[in-house]
Nucleic acid binder design. Structure first.
Lengths: 206, 206
DNA sequence: TTTTATTATTAAACACGTTCAACAACAAAA
DNA sequence: TTTTGTTGTTGAACGTGTTTAATAATAAAA
């Protein structure tokens, strides 16, 4: 690697570290690109050269921590628990993680997941992997006989994620909402999705 | 009403009309507050005095049309159709409505629903009414015997709305996604939520 | 009527994210 | 080595949403 490339990587790292520090301490909307540049010891223009815009910087600065949180949640998942409990274990880990800095992750999610598709490559990939994992879990439950064979695992995975995501947003939007309330709400929603709400005759009829 | 109050209302209306026009023609991110002010024949500062910020102006400028779309969807809802089909009728009407200007409504929803709770009074109220309506619909189904008595109607309403909302966002984020694809996706998700995915023994066991 | 208080309006300024033209450090070619 | 090309960096500037201090028009009080 040439001298040019190494110094470029170094400044990139300087910016990333400065960004991570200020995003957490001052909040993502209170800290400016100029703040980050000053903290990193580079010019504001340099920040943009390296990260295209503030949202992209936010994404790159935070996605690794999220990835670790997911990995931790999956690693500690109780293998013998039922589908519902395993889902709730993941949710509990992730909500707990986001609870460390709700404002920060609210802004991150707002500025990424609601952009036009194609931006946010890191978080997009995370979501895809996540959904794939969920889908595989549900497929496996079919083999165990707990999930019906005619149920579409991909639809189930994306639906359960939708429920997870909606409650998460409500959780992040309301700083006073206790973590337990969010988890209970999600548990009720997920349970409903697993068991349905129609009476037997109606449910079977479809 | 004093002369002062009437002229104030007039300028407010001028701004609103200018905003509605430019939001639709130029797009919400392309048209600036200065553009709107010029179109309305007032100063940029005046726009802020009347609407606090651009997002609030966006919300006020658009929520009435959304309200009309909801009202139309509810009014044309087939009374004798099953719960699933009635939900899908509403979704079809609303997705079709948003399809008229996906970019505009994507920005609106991003800038409102992801803000801290308490902002966006208009859209918040709309959502509350919407959920109440859904909940009542589901309660009624209980009396008809199609929905189980032990199912929580409020959880069901918010869950079904979450599914509706998630698919809507994906629809608005992807300009190439056909309307039908979004509707089919939602139909599959909603059907799953109504009927569940667990096998009978598992589902009943809970 | 005259004086005082209120308020709708705005020009000018500010803060921020971002762009651009120029520079300087490095690499490649002669 | 000298010349030429490449590229990481930046100061200055731009466009935008928003704030602020001042103005002018109206209402209320004397």
């Amino acid at each position: 690697m040439s001298r040019r490339e190494t110094t470029k990587l170094e400044t990139r790292q300087l910016i990333l570290e400065a960004a991570r520090k200020l995003f957490h301490t001052k909040g993502p909307e209170q800290c400016t690109m100029r703040d980050i540049a000053r903290e990193a010891g580079v010019s504001p223009a340099s920040v943009v050269v390296h990260f295209k815009n503030k949202t992209a910087l936010l994404e790159v600065a935070l996605y690794e921590d999220i990835e670790k949180a997911i990995a931790g949640a999956v690693a500690t998942m109780p293998q013998d628990a039922c589908l519902h409990d395993r889902l709730m274990h993941i949710a509990q880990c992730m909500y707990g993680f986001y609870d460390n800095d709700r404002e920060l992750y609210r802004v991150l999610i707002r500025d990424t997941t609601f952009e036009k598709a194609g931006q946010n490559p890191y978080l997009t990939k995370q979501l895809e992997d996540y959904l794939q994992f969920f889908g595989a879990m549900i497929e496996q439950e079919k083999l165990l006989g707990t999930v019906r064979f005619d149920a579409d695992a991909r639809i189930a995975a994306s639906s359960l994620f939708s429920l997870y995501f909606s409650v998460l947003m409500e959780f992040l939007r309301n700083p006073n909402m206790p973590l337990n309330m969010a988890l209970e709400w999600l548990a009720a929603s997920a349970h409903q999705h697993l068991t349905g709400i129609l009476t037997s005759k109606e449910g079977k009829g479809k």
